[in-house]
Each structure stands twice: as C-alpha cells, then as structure tokens.
Amino acid sequence: MNIFRLTGDLSHLAAIIILLLKIWKSRSCAGISGKSQILFAMVFTTRYLDLLTAYISLYNTSMKIIYIGCSYATVYLIYAKFKATYDGNHDTFRVEFLVVPVGGLSFLVNHDFSPLEILWTFSIYLEAVAILPQLFMISKTGEAETITTHYLFFLGLYRALYLINWVWRFYFEGFFDMIAIVAGVVQTILYCDFFYLYVTKVLKGKKLSLPA
C-alpha cells in the first residue's frame, strides 16, 4: 500500500459518498445517469466476488463491502425512492453497446480463462467506460450541477492516482498488470475533457455548462 493507492481509494470513496449525499440531501437524482450507476453496481459485483473466496485484509474486505453497499444504495435511490426525479429522457445512452463488446473482450483478453478471472476482467473493462452514459447525459443537457462535477472529479482522480500507484508498484515491487493498466489509462483519458472544464470553470466558481 503506497500513498497514491490509498489516496486513490479514498478519492473513490469520496466520489461515491458525495453522490449518495447529493441525492439524499436534495431528495433528487436530477442530472444523474442511472445507467452509469447500474454499470458501476455491475462493476463492483463482478469484481468483488472474491470476497467469497479469498481474504486479503480487513481494509480490503471493508472497502469492498462499502463500495458495493453504497453502489446498490445509489441505484435504489435513483430507480425506487426518488424515481420521480430521475431524468430518464436524457439518460439515453445505449449501454448494450458497452456491455456486449466489453463482455466479449473479457473472454478474449484475460490473465486466466476461469469464471472468476473473466468476471474480474469484465469489471475492469466495464469500469473504464461505465461513466460514458453520465458524460453523454451532461453533453445532452449541456450542464451539470456543481456537486455532480465534484463527484465526477473525485471519480476521475481515483483512477489517475491508481496510474501513479502502478508506476510506483512497477519500480518498487515489480508488480505489473497489463489489463488493469491499459483499462486504467483509457478510463483516465475519458475524464480529461471533463478535468479541463472542472479546472477552468467549476474551480473558478462558475457552473459547468457547455456551449450550445
């Protein structure tokens, strides 16, 4: 565990909590893509099946349970409790265009052709693109609430910090996971345009709105 990995995990946790609190406090999930949140729930579910087969550490187990729990809670708030506020008309990204190719790729390119490993690979690939429905929704409506941009910032920052963590682990531990690294790079690149808008607009006190 190095500082980049830890701050990456905490950044991820911050993102998840920010989103949950935003929805809970405002009693509304307006502007949030339920599809992205379902994809993230799928990501955590397929990745953390090893909760049932392996024990790594108390930290590892607790974080996994928190991530899964919060993820399902978010989906529940969007599709059940605050369903009336869900903006389905703008959440029109076709998720099958992500899930099907990602599923195929995880069968073709993985570390080991076993069910658990294929599901882990699927989760890594899916996570890389799971934010696309949310970004698509923002591009469609042309704006995002500031709190939603904080969520996206921490979610993007998490994988960027993991990239530094992997450089660190390569030099100091000889650890190298090509699947995670390539997917992590793709995932981080998808946030770059958003990072730019976040720094140039949101951090200067302006609302994130895109030119019409």
Partner: peptide, 10 residues
C-alpha cells in the same frame, strides 16, 4: 513479470 499476483487492489 506480467502475471498478476491476485487482485489486492480495489
């Protein structure tokens, strides 16, 4: 090495 040593990351 290109072999993963389990998935200790989250």
């Amino acid at each position: 090495t290109d072999k993963t040593v389990g998935h200790d990351e989250l």
